[in-house]
Amino acid sequence: MKIEKAFGPLLSNYEVLALLKEQETYQKTQSKLDPIATSNLLTVQFETLKFLNESPASVQTPDALQQYMEAMKDWKLTKAEKLQILNLRPKSAVELLILIEECEERFTVEQLEDILGIVEQTLPYYGAEEDAEMQDQEQPVEEETTEEQVVVDVV
């Protein structure tokens, strides 16, 4: 075994999620004939999917990613910073601050607000339960629609 290139392109959480989902579907079609998917793969696949399904990547779409990258083009952020913002989808300035190196020197408060605005516009909202409650008060319209969807799913 030889490592040709240890650090190739970076993958976003969404891309890994999409890859693993696709792989899972493939395994389901295969497994009866050839139970080749070994336990090590199934374990890590299951656990990684669990992690990613609890992350903002679970609600992202290829379109949203493309729009986000397009909107972020003019901002002087490193690839890693853009990727982190994409993966963690900050909702407040304090969350954004920790993702950008030497943030205070590079960006003004207004610029950070602009970046947050882009994130809000392009990437779908994802929140833990307690956030959802807070969101409920701020944007009741959005919450209602999700509730409706849930009801439809149950029916």
Partner: peptide, 29 residues
């Protein structure tokens, strides 16, 4: 956080997996 790493290695496919598409068989291995 996730990166792509390029690796070269010898991959052995056992005869039981010959009915599969070779690329799939190699990936599985």
């Amino acid at each position: 956080m996730f990166v792509l790493t390029t690796v070269s290695d010898t991959v052995k496919v056992e005869p039981t997996h010959f009915r599969k598409d070779p690329i799939d068989a190699i990936k599985d291995e």
